[in-house]
């Protein structure tokens, strides 16, 4: 749900990073935070456990500049990936404008990716959204690991509608901004249709 403020000439959009536990959603946000100059970002909030696992969400507000005279602000959220946090995950999808699915490339995590994708589909439907129509981008993270599956194989398993797909190594920033840019673009193009 985009918030368009004609009075303040601002557009606010919400983007959610979804995916299995330990897949690198928080690392994506951390990299964006580290590489954005301080004028255009807010505080990175992590509601995490003592062992740095996401408990509720991470949140990063990002100011991308103006488009057609409107300041565009993106609110980036991650969800907790661990299976048993489903109730929290569902809450965070409320009012989402665009979704990034961060898949873990390791073969041992292939099943978790599929499970998490099914979970995303189910939770979106409960909010009245459809994965088939919502702005959506896929990321294969951890491409640098020796146990990474071939990208083609992952594409076949996880790509559902020909959505933009990126290979990434989030701690080094490979593919991180490309992914973010792609989803931001889809969200803004969606505004055009309304």
């Amino acid at each position: 749900m985009t918030f368009i403020n004609y009075a303040a000439r601002e557009i606010n959009c919400k983007i959610v990073f979804y995916g299995p536990g330990l897949g690198g959603k928080t690392t994506n946000l951390q990299y964006v935070y580290d590489r954005t100059n301080s004028n255009s970002k807010g505080k990175l909030i992590s509601l995490a456990t003592e062992t740095d696992r996401t408990l509720f969400f991470d949140f990063l507000p990002l100011d991308l500049g103006t488009v057609r005279g409107f300041r565009t602000r993106f609110h980036l959220y991650t969800v907790p990936g661990q299976v048993f946090y489903d109730a929290s995950r569902k809450l965070i999808l409320k009012g989402v404008d665009g979704v990034v699915f961060v898949a873990d490339s390791q073969r041992a995590r292939a099943e978790s990716n599929v499970e998490s994708l099914q979970n995303l589909d189910k939770n979106l439907k409960e909010h009245g959204y459809d994965l088939a129509t919502i702005p959506y981008v896929l990321q294969f993270n951890k491409r640098d690991l020796p146990t990474a599956m071939p990208a083609d194989e992952m594409y076949q398993q996880l790509n559902i509608k020909g959505e933009p797909t990126f290979e990434a190594v989030a701690p080094q920033g490979v593919g991180v901004f490309e992914t973010l840019k792609a989803v931001a673009k889809l969200v803004l193009l969606e505004l055009k249709k309304k």
Binding site: G69, L188, L191, K192
Partner: peptide
């Protein structure tokens, strides 16, 4: 006309 009806790819690329 909505002010966003004419957003172009270029507008969006400029943001980045």
């Amino acid at each position: 006309e909505s002010p966003f009806a004419e957003i172009t790819d270029e507008d969006i690329d400029n943001l980045f």
